[in-house]
């Protein structure tokens, strides 16, 4: 579903991603771990088209992203990419002027063009399922961090993406909530969708991620199945990182 090869990304002449290769099969979940500034988020943003890159190629869903594309062609490909992928940002970026319900039905109404009644019904069902039905008519500022995070996740899920990118999706959730959300993501993956998540929470990854990728300084240090990387890391750097996690 996602195929990355030789990906290099520069920020102001400084190379921050050093020729990465990643493969994520359909219907699986990839967890990217690593310290701050290791390039996890940058990698994710390059894959889902928020950042252009200088070298290599990315295939995401059925869209090929290449550094050689013209701005116009790139934008055209992004349009079809956007219909397949969703994303939850670390800082959420909820629309502050809209209520929780308005936040989650905005794109279904104006991008997917479904009827208002159907969007509302669906939105309310999701809010219910995440245990935040009471927040429907509140604006984000009146929501707790955990509630905001769940609204952001619902906003992404409402567009029924085939691939979902999550950047620290559960940082503000307590263990019980966190576990509930993981169950929802598991179901999402079981239905054949693909999940890419960047997180510090090893605990959250267990029982969700099929593969783990450990990054340091823009390079992949170790990658493999979740059990292997988390329980028997080969590289001493991975081991050192996991000791603190």
């Amino acid at each position: 579903m996602i195929h990355v090869s030789g990906l290099e990304k520069f920020f102001q002449g400084k190379r921050v991603l050093h020729g990465l290769n990643v493969d994520i099969p359909r219907g699986s979940a990839l967890g990217i771990i690593g310290g701050s500034g290791s390039g996890k988020t940058t990698l994710m943003r390059c894959i889902n088209g928020l950042l252009r890159f200088e070298q290599g190629q990315v295939r995401c869903g059925d869209v090929d992203l290449l550094p050689t594309l013209s701005e116009k062609d790139y934008k055209k490909r992004l349009q079809s990419l956007r219909r397949q992928v969703g994303m939850v940002f670390q800082h959420l970026y909820l629309f502050p002027h809209k209520t929780a319900l308005q936040n989650v039905i905005e794109a279904p109404l104006y991008v997917a063009n479904i009827s208002r009644d159907q969007a509302i019904a669906e939105g309310e069902r999701w809010l219910e399922r995440f245990g935040i039905a009471h927040t429907a008519h509140r604006r984000p500022e009146a929501l707790s961090g955990g509630e905001q995070q769940r609204v952001a996740i619902i906003r992404a899920l409402m567009m029924k993406p085939k691939i979902l990118f999550l950047d620290e999706p559960t940082s503000a959730l307590d263990p019980k909530r966190s576990s509930d959300v993981r169950e929802i993501f598991n179901e999402f993956v079981r239905q054949g969708s693909t999940l890419v998540l960047v997180t510090h929470s090893i605990r959250f990854l267990r029982g969700l991620a099929d593969q783990i990728l450990y990054m340091e300084s823009g390079e992949v240090v170790e990658s493999g199945s979740a059990e292997q990387v988390l329980d028997a890391p080969k590289d001493p750097r991975t081991r050192a990182f996991l000791e603190y996690a």
């Binding site: 889902n48 928020l50 349009q79 956007r82 219909r83 992928v85 969703g86 994303m87 940002f89 800082h91 959420l92 970026y93 909820l94 629309f95 502050p96 002027h97 905005e106 794109a107 104006y110 991008v111 997917a112 906003r155 992404a156 567009m159």
Partner: peptide
């Protein structure tokens, strides 16, 4: 914040729709 543009973009909202529905109402405030 630029994040508002990105959040709308990843939902598939085009620039004009984003401006009209997301950016303008906030800027107006």
């Amino acid at each position: 914040p630029a994040g508002q543009w990105e959040a709308a973009a990843v939902l598939g909202m085009g620039p004009w729709l984003t401006f009209r529905r997301v950016i303008f109402p906030q800027a107006f405030r």
